[in-house]
């Protein structure tokens, strides 16, 4: 695209956040995506009822995460001794002594950040789904949700569980609790939820409804 010398509304333009290439916004049909021609970053993606779906999936994440934290996750038994552990126990494994900070970090990465992100997305999208004005501070809420994205590590934790199970397998018998299956489902839901969150569309919607 070319940018004329004539001044125009900057709101009609979109710049690639990755490489600064400038484009005029085009309207897309459902299922279409607009990529940057230079670095192929997805700029806009349009999906049918994306807000409603992203909100519904966020609610699912919150419910599953609460369940996955409360119920027993895994148990081991050997020679008549049994120990079971929840996701929070795993996070608090470092709680004693100088490793306390690591406990806080692990709890944040696998439980608190994923759940906080979903609550924030829910807060931002729910009024938009029903065609209402956004709640107060929705802009800040979405900003925090976006900042948390790289630090939400539930899916990495699941691979960690798989590795840990192999290590324990020859030491003791392993049993799976309900939280294990909830957490496994959670990872799938988080991936799908992410695919329905298009930043540009949400920012645009927040912008428009404020005016």
């Amino acid at each position: 695209m070319t940018v004329d010398d004539t001044p125009e509304d900057e709101g009609e333009l979109i710049a690639c956040p990755q490489c600064d290439a400038l484009y005029r916004v085009v309207s897309l049909d459902h299922g279409e995506r607009a990529n940057c021609t230079r670095c192929h970053t997805v700029l806009i993606s349009s999906r049918r009822r994306a807000f409603a779906r992203a909100a519904a999936l966020s609610l699912t994440v919150v419910v599953l995460m609460i369940g996955a934290t409360i119920f027993p996750f895994l148990s081991v038994s050997v020679a008549g001794l049994t120990n079971s552990s929840s996701v929070l126990d795993a996070a608090l494994a470092f709680a004693g002594g100088p490793m306390f900070a690591l406990s806080v970090a692990v709890a944040a990465l696998i439980v608190l950040i994923p759940i906080a992100r979903s609550v924030l997305v829910l807060y931002v999208l729910t009024p938009l789904v029903f065609g209402r004005k956004p709640f107060r501070h929705a802009v800040d809420a979405f900003r925090y949700a976006e900042a948390m994205r790289p630090w939400s590590m539930a899916e990495i934790f699941v691979i960690g569980v798989a590795v840990a199970l192999v290590k324990v397998a020859d030491l003791a018998r392993v049993g799976f609790g309900p939280a294990f299956w909830m957490f496994a489902a959670l990872v799938v839901v988080i991936v799908v939820q992410d695919s329905y969150i298009n930043r540009w569309t949400i920012w645009k919607a927040l912008d428009r409804s404020r005016q």
Binding site: M1, T2, V3, E10, G11, L13, I14, A15, C16, P17, C19, D20, A21, L22, Y23, R24, V26, A34, N35, C36, T37, R38, H40, L43, R143, E146, R199, W200, W203, D207
Partner: peptide
């Protein structure tokens, strides 16, 4: 892909005297 009139020469926000928000892509 986004329509581009001159595929070799990309127009950037900075080149057009604009500043882009890296968070929400607004110019």
């Amino acid at each position: 892909d986004m329509e581009s009139a001159r595929p070799q020469q990309t127009v950037t926000a900075r080149g057009s005297g604009l500043v882009a928000c890296t968070r929400c892509s607004r110019v």
